[in-house]
């Protein structure tokens, strides 16, 4: 009986920990500002929300399309990492926090597939496809970002 209970408890713990492991920060509105063809830098934006029960830490971001990706605050101040407590959110948006892609390997067009990989502290890698948006002629006012 005790053995049976013990196995059940163990199973519970395993289920719970795998549950915690599997919970992923949600990413919405992930997009990239179409850069001028001569430019080898671009900015990406997104909305992150941690609906998990544990704190998540975003260590770094990479992209197959860029030599280097950085997280920047306003005025281009580098962010070493991003800590999201449970129920915390964070927004990268124009003229504010942004994800900066440097050393683009090829010019980006409207239909280029741009991928970002979020590297989380727990070893999890989260892959995102970015929508490339041409912002010319867009008044920044009232845009949903």
């Amino acid at each position: 009986m005790v053995v049976k209970q013990g196995i059940f408890l163990l199973w519970m713990i395993m289920m719970m920990s795998s549950e915690l492991q599997a919970c992923e920060v949600t990413v919405q509105h992930a997009w990239l500002r179409l850069p001028p063809p001569v430019s080898d830098t671009a900015a990406a934006y997104m909305q992150l929300n941690n609906h998990c029960q544990t704190t998540k830490q975003l260590k770094s971001i990479s992209s197959p399309q860029a030599s280097m990706v950085m997280m920047h605050h306003v005025k281009m101040k580098m962010m070493q990492s991003l800590v999201l407590k449970p129920q915390d959110g964070f927004t990268f948006q124009p003229k504010a926090n942004h994800v900066m892609l440097m050393g683009l390997k090829a010019p980006i067009h409207k239909d280029t597939k741009v991928t970002l990989i979020l590297h989380w502290q727990d070893g999890h890698q989260q892959t995102l496809q970015l929508e490339v948006k041409d912002m010319r002629g867009e008044s920044m006012q009232g845009m949903n970002m």
């Binding site: 080898d40 671009a42 124009p94 942004h98 912002m135 010319r136 920044m140």
Partner: peptide, 20 residues
């Protein structure tokens, strides 16, 4: 500067749209 990915393109868009 041209390697500025966020604020410069945003401001140049505002400038261009204002003229238009």
């Amino acid at each position: 500067y041209s390697h500025c990915p966020d604020i410069c393109p945003a401001t140049l868009n505002v400038m261009a749209s204002a003229i238009r």
